[in-house]
Computed example of a mutant assay.
Amino acid sequence: MRILGIESSCDETGVALVDASGSGVPRLLGHALHSQIEMHQAYGGVVPELASRDHIRRVLPLTDAVLAQAGLGLDAIDAIACTRGPGLAGALLVGTGVAHALGVALGRPVHGVHHLEGHLLSPFLSADPPSFPFVALLVSGGHTQLMRVDGVGRYALLGETIDDAAGEAFDKSAKLLGLGYPGGPALSRLAEHGDPAAYKFPRPLLHSGDLDFSFAGLKTAVLTQVKRLARAAPEGPATSHLADPLTPQEKADVAAGAQAAIVDVLVKKSLAALQATGLRRLVVAGGVGANARLREQLDAQAARQGLRVHYPELALCTDNGAMIALAAGLRAQAGLLDGAEATGRFDVAPRWPLALVE
């Protein structure tokens, strides 16, 4: 069974084709991705209308590229999967609309996939795939969650953020330092040159006794520290461009301290989730899962405690079509692939809790 996957939930257009025949992990036959980062940089963040329009331009050429990689034609597709949610409504509608148009033209079924389920299952495409059951740390965009995963479609929420997510804490801290968009990767690069102990930043809910997260307080602490450094600058009092009076080393130290605080919370909460569930295997997925310090800290703890940690390939940490096609393939193998047929009604779900997916 060959499944074409289309991802268009935010600012990346991804298309991929997998072969889900048999009982093994679906095999990736081809994938292509276009990022809109350069287009949105001028605005300091994603502009939904521009994102939707760009998806329209990119999705069909990317589909052609994927089929060329696989050496197959459209008639070789057995089913089509698309991101149904969560995400930007307009962006989701582009991918869903194209998927259903292809479904009607080819007479193939179309299935809506949960974006976070795609991230959660993406490590199955890595060189070191996990096995069930495991604890999943989902750190993607505005989502930070810990899930117990007993199988495909068998997800139990253990904890989640009560305000800002880890990715938002990275991005907002970067913006306070004047690092531009996308902020998270820029802050991580700058942090490599800083001292994480130069300034003291809080670790919110670190000792709360539960598995929930909170990063809004950390953002406030970064803002306070930047203002303090700006007031102390020789140029005079802080201006509206708070980061301007800071020296390069001060910026690097703030970046390192903010990153260390975020990573400490993610690592300790993940270890607490493993202890609470009695499981020994952790899967980390989503864009923040590419963070080098997070991987370093988790790997070190795993080595000490005899745990296993699995990550997606770096190229598959961001949003991509491969994870959508894979999720559909794994659901098909588990007998869970449902959804509207190609001629039926389609919809999108901009807000769709993963815990409701079965």
Rank of each mutant, 00 (worst) to 15 (best):
A285K: 04
G286S: 07
G286A: 06
G287V: 01
G287W: 02
G287A: 04
V288I: 01
V288P: 00
V288C: 00
G289A: 13
G289P: 08
G289K: 07
G289D: 10
G289S: 13
A290M: 06
A290Q: 07
A290N: 10
A290W: 08
N291Y: 05
N291R: 07
N291I: 04
N291V: 03
N291Q: 10
N291A: 13
A292W: 10
A292Q: 15
A292M: 09
A292R: 14
R293T: 14
R293G: 06
L294F: 09
L294H: 05
L294K: 05
L294I: 10
R295H: 11
R295W: 05
R295I: 09
R295M: 10
E296W: 12
E296L: 13
E296P: 08
E296N: 14
Q297N: 12
Q297A: 15
Q297K: 13
Q297G: 09
Q297T: 08
Q297V: 10
Q297D: 15
Q297P: 04
L298I: 04
L298N: 08
L298M: 04
L298G: 03
D299A: 15
D299T: 15
D299H: 15
A300Q: 13
A300C: 08
A300Y: 11
Q301V: 01
Q301S: 13
Q301C: 12
Q301I: 00
Q301T: 02
Q301L: 03
Q301M: 08
Q301W: 06
A302Q: 12
A302V: 11
A302I: 12
A302E: 10
A302P: 12
A303L: 11
A303R: 14
A303S: 13
A303H: 10
A303I: 06
A303Q: 14
A303E: 15
R304V: 12
R304C: 11
R304D: 15
Q305D: 15
Q305H: 14
Q305R: 14
Q305N: 13
Q305I: 01
G306T: 10
G306R: 11
G306Q: 11
L307S: 07
L307W: 12
L307Q: 07
R308K: 14
R308A: 15
R308T: 14
R308G: 15
R308C: 14
R308S: 15
V309W: 07
V309F: 09
V309H: 04
V309G: 08
V309L: 03
V309P: 00
H310D: 10
H310S: 07
H310A: 04
H310Y: 11
H310V: 05
H310F: 12
Y311A: 04
Y311S: 07
Y311T: 07
Y311M: 03
Y311C: 06
P312Q: 06
P312W: 01
P312D: 05
P312L: 02
E313F: 00
E313K: 05
E313G: 15
L314F: 09
L314P: 12
L314N: 05
L314Y: 07
A315S: 12
A315E: 13
A315Y: 01
A315F: 01
A315R: 11
A315T: 08
L316I: 00
L316H: 00
L316W: 03
C317S: 09
C317P: 00
C317G: 02
C317H: 02
C317N: 03
C317Y: 01
T318C: 03
T318L: 05
T318I: 02
D319F: 02
D319A: 01
D319C: 02
D319T: 03
D319K: 00
D319S: 02
N320V: 03
N320H: 02
N320P: 04
N320F: 00
G321P: 05
G321M: 00
G321D: 09
